[in-house]
Design a protein around this nucleic acid. Structure first.
Length: 135
DNA sequence: CTTCTGACA
DNA sequence: TGTCAGCA
């Protein structure tokens, strides 16, 4: 069967700070901004899975690439959606996208193609292209 | 000792 | 964003 080990929340925020190079302040901030969701222990302590750590590294990269938190948030929302059908967006998300001030489609497309494996390009680019025509 | 939230600079 | 307070 699959090994959910990658998804098991096992690291305390301190360990994540060492692994990602991000400050706890920032990690908590990203969570507050809705970029990530973190499981808590009964004592309200945050726990991060190896996958979550990678996700944070990804956010760090995107940020370094010049993307705004809002753009990354939208990107993460895309991934959460089915990459193939990719059409289960909630009205609230749609509105946010329409209102996204820094939506440079070409820039996002480049960032995506250079950062992600071919697999995820299709649906994402289709959506971006559509938004492009629309605009 | 580490983490948490809220708040200030 | 760093850092401090006051808790747990």
């Amino acid at each position: 069967m699959d090994r959910p080990s990658q998804d098991l929340p096992i690291y305390a925020i301190g360990a994540v700070e060492d692994m990602t190079g991000l400050s706890g302040r920032r990690i908590r901030y990203y969570e507050k901004m809705g970029l990530i969701s973190t499981p808590r222990t009964e004592g309200n302590q945050r726990l991060y899975s190896p996958a979550a750590v990678e996700k944070l590294k990804e956010i760090k990269r995107l940020l370094a690439a010049g993307m705004k938190l809002t753009g990354i948030k939208a990107l993460l929302a895309e991934e959460k959606t089915d990459g193939r059908t990719g059409l289960s967006l909630e009205p609230a998300e749609m509105e946010k996208r329409e209102a996204e001030p820094e939506r440079d489609v070409d820039f996002l497309t480049n960032a995506i193609t250079s950062l992600y494996p071919v697999k995820q390009h299709g649906a994402l680019q289709s959506r971006l292209e559509r938004g492009k025509e629309k605009t």
